[in-house]
Write a protein that binds this DNA or RNA. Structure first.
Lengths: 144, 144
DNA sequence: TCAATTATGATAGTGATTATCATATTCAAC
DNA sequence: GTTGAATATGATAATCACTATCATAATTGA
């Protein structure tokens, strides 16, 4: 089963907020963690239903919101269409290179860019909390 | 009225695509150009109606799509909610600092970050076409 | 065990956008 | 100018991704 750390994070979050535990949330969390992809709510719903067919899509949306609030997940908005969710806890920060042809995207990181962003924000007297950098282009495969 | 250059760009684009001219598109383009804000389709629709009350929202959406395709405008997606459109032609590329408290955003640019992005893309054998960098934080005003 | 509170699933509602379609306009060829 | 084929338009229905509502169920502290 594993994912003990992540489960503890959610449990603690639930406790702090005065919420209650539920099996559905646990099912959703574990399915989310097990799947190393950027899933949409709909896709996660389809996967969770295999384990728990009684689950409703509303609960998936509600749980994804909790996961984001507790720092376990993060939203990813690539153009129009559904929001995708990526693992956040224990994953190094990264940005995305998105292929405009095939839609594939890969994760990259550049510490220098991060540093420059801080500098840029400081110049405007902004307290930087985070950022999303999407780079669009054509990937190796699609260049042929 | 001015905006001759921009009008020519749209005219050329329309001609190249074998489309036809229309007064509505001209009204929408001019209202868009005149307003130095990041408007949503809805907001632009409200403004254009003052000049041409008969216009329909669908035409505003259709025209904004054309403006983006012709390089006159660019989409801006800040979290959920409607897409906003910014002027693109003749405007230097820039990124955005978004305040998570008041929603205000300011435009910034750092040539070094741009350069590093190119390097990052090249490392992955990506042909970079563009990017969107959103930095979230708290602005000077909201820090109090 | 009980009572208060939160969670759930079904489904209605919403907001932004897109598709449809009948009618109107544009524009190149005559 | 008139015509006719193609595109544009406005009204509105449809769609998509959520979000709110609500009756019922599960959780949890007393």
């Amino acid at each position: 089963m594993a994912f003990d750390e992540e489960q503890k994070i959610l449990d603690d979050f639930v406790r702090e907020k005065g919420l209650k535990h539920s099996g559905q949330r646990k099912d959703i969390l574990l399915t989310f963690l097990k799947t190393e992809k950027h899933l949409s709510a709909d896709e996660l719903y389809a996967l969770v239903k295999k384990k728990n067919p009684a689950i409703g899509i509303a609960t998936v949306y509600r749980t994804l919101k909790l996961l984001c609030e507790s720092g376990l997940s993060s939203e990813l908005r690539l153009g129009s269409g559904a929001v995708r969710y990526e693992h956040f806890y224990g994953h190094e920060h990264h940005d995305h290179l998105v292929c405009v042809k095939c839609g594939e995207f890969i994760e990259v990181v550049d510490p220098e860019i991060e540093k420059l962003q801080e500098r840029l924000a400081a110049k405007e007297d902004f307290s930087l909390q985070g950022h999303k950098l999407l780079m669009y282009g054509i990937c190796r495969k699609c260049k042929g």
